[in-house]
Simulated assay, not measured.
Amino acid sequence: MTEDYYVGAYWGPRKETALECARRAELFFHMLARCDPSFVQWYRAGRGFPRELPGHPVRMEVEALEKWLLKGRNRTDVGKHVIEDLGFSQTMWNAKKEATDISIHCGMYTSWAPNSCLLKVTRESPIRERLLRVSVLAEVLIAMATAWDPDFAMASSSEMVDLLEKQGVEVRVGWLTYLSRRRGRLPPLPAPVRIEPVGTLGWLLVLSPEPMTAGNPEHVAFTSRVRELLERAGLIAWPSPEPEGA
């Protein structure tokens, strides 16, 4: 069975303007373009784009990204009023078929949902095989960490996450995992886990040089073990959100 791999970064409530988010997005896409040739050009939805293209090409400059994010504000069903605390949500992709998709939710400061940046890896080969390498995914995680300053980020298959996740909201451990220094101190971890600093922001944990799959019991057991050690160190549970108005 082909597993669905993705890279996701998550952070708690952070009130930011569309301009502030656009500056982060510009840095993210600039760094992402260096990770793989398929990450250079992205497209968005909208009427009137040429049929030979997957959508409207997205210009990766702050002004264009700010306008793009402003179009993604959440609004009420009645009156279409902007819901300020839900920030901005947008999606883009890089091909007509078997695309890699990116979804961004930023500027959100409500307590019930995290901000996030998700990259869903295409199911098409040979691009898929090229992307599912530690060298590429590590650079994608570093780009997310540098641009968005998340609490954590990870690269994994959805199937592996489903097997390991125990709480509704928790730090997810994947084949590769990024943890912000805000989370706390790392405990000793077993070989062959490789730990690399990401500037002064946090650490990148690489559990294996080869892809880890939910279909391999040894991969599941080892990832579960690492998760257990991080949980004992207090790095898995997110703080409970404060009551509204607190």
Rank of each mutant, 00 (worst) to 15 (best):
K120W: 06
W11I: 04
E129A: 14
N115V: 08
T177E: 01
R14M: 10
I127M: 14
R194I: 13
T17Q: 05
C35T: 14
H56I: 10
M31R: 15
L186T: 07
G215P: 00
F49L: 10
I102C: 14
A22M: 07
A138C: 13
R14F: 05
A147T: 03
V82N: 00
G215H: 09
V134D: 11
R47H: 13
R133I: 00
L163W: 09
A95L: 05
C35I: 02
F222P: 02
L201Y: 11
L32N: 03
F49I: 07
S156C: 11
Q167F: 11
E61V: 09
L131M: 11
K80G: 07
R24K: 15
V169Q: 14
L189W: 10
D149A: 12
G48W: 02
G168I: 07
Y109D: 06
P192V: 06
P190H: 06
P150S: 06
M144G: 03
P197R: 12
W93L: 04
P50C: 09
R181V: 09
A99T: 01
M154P: 00
V220E: 02
R225V: 01
T213K: 12
M31S: 11
M60V: 09
I102D: 00
L230N: 01
R24Y: 03
M1Y: 11
G8W: 02
E52S: 14
A237T: 12
P197V: 09
M154G: 02
G72P: 01
Q41G: 02
D4A: 15
R182F: 08
Y5D: 00
T110Y: 05
Y10C: 10
M1C: 09
L137W: 01
N115I: 09
E139A: 12
R227E: 04
L176A: 05
P209L: 07
T223S: 05
L164P: 03
F39E: 05
K71T: 08
W93R: 09
I83E: 08
Q167P: 00
E3P: 04
D77S: 13
E124V: 10
S135H: 12
W203L: 07
R123C: 06
C117D: 01
W112Y: 15
L137N: 01
E242G: 07
A237P: 02
S240T: 10
N216T: 11
A99C: 03
S38E: 15
R23W: 02
K120D: 10
T146Q: 11
A33F: 08
G184W: 03
A233F: 12
V136Q: 06
P50D: 13
L69Y: 02
E61F: 04
V193F: 03
S111N: 10
G215I: 00
P54H: 04
V136F: 07
R24M: 11
H30G: 06
L132W: 00
V193S: 03
G79I: 04
A153C: 09
F28H: 07
Y43W: 13
P190G: 04
Q90N: 13
G107P: 00
R123N: 08
M154N: 09
L132S: 00
S157C: 11
A99D: 02
V206R: 12
R232E: 15
N94E: 08
V140S: 02
